[in-house]
Each structure stands twice: as C-alpha cells, then as structure tokens.
Design a protein around this nucleic acid. Structure first.
Length: 107
DNA sequence: ACCGTGACTCTGC
DNA sequence: TGCAGAGCCACGG
C-alpha cells in the first residue's frame, strides 16, 4: 500500500495525539514536530480529512494568533470552541486563547 | 511540469 | 486589534 498522503497525514495525526487535554498547539508547532517545519498549511489539510467520529484531538490545534481557523459560526468552529472550553481553556473577548499559558511545549 | 488552492505565518501599516 | 501583502509546503487537476 504505501499511499504517500496517508503517510504524511498519519505522521501529523500522531503528533496531534500527543497534545494533552487542556493544552493547545499551533498548526506550525504540529508541522514542526511532524518533521514538516513550515508546512503549517499541510497540517490544516490533514485535519480537514479527519472523519467526524475520530478520536484524534484535532480541536487542540489552533492558529498562531491563538484563534480558531475554522469558518466563524460554523458547526465545526463551535464544536472546537466547546471542546476546548470543556478542557478548561478560556477565550478572551476577541475569541483568542492565551497561547503563553495554554501552548503545548513538547520535550 | 505548470498553476491554483488551502482548518497557515510573519511583517508592516 | 485589524487588514493586506508576500512567503510557505504539499497536493490535485
């Protein structure tokens, strides 16, 4: 088999699974940890391909501004916000997460 | 092989 | 803080 797409996606998903509850990582962080430094956009694409019933904590991945990158108001965006809130993550008035406090620091 | 596209990021105003 | 521009990687057509 060896489908290359699956190969890279799985590496990305594997990194996402390492993010503990209550913590978040940016797309860039995940890309870097997956050995794809600079390919933040590729991470977004990989998460986009996740099935709705996945166990992978995709909601813990946000952008470098501390905001949700999904379309504002979309069901997915609300789901991400709710899941993060359920893990104790607070949002600022401008719907941002305090990265200095919640950012996952591997190693 | 070229071009357009994206759940991105950084810099500047 | 917000918006625009340019840079980025990898992918699909």
């Amino acid at each position: 088999m060896g489908q290359k797409q699956t190969d890279i996606d799985q590496r990305i998903w594997q990194v996402v699974m390492l993010i503990p509850a209550g913590k978040v990582a940016t797309y860039g962080d995940v890309a870097s940890q997956a050995g794809l430094s600079g390919a933040a956009r590729r991470v977004g694409h990989a998460l986009r391909g996740l099935p709705p019933d996945t166990r992978i904590p995709w909601h813990r991945v946000i952008n470098a501004q501390g905001r949700i990158s999904l379309p504002p108001g979309s069901a997915a965006a609300r789901a991400q916000r709710d899941r993060l809130a359920a893990e104790g993550i607070r949002f600022t008035g401008t719907r941002r997460v305090d990265l200095a406090k919640h950012r996952w620091q591997p190693g």
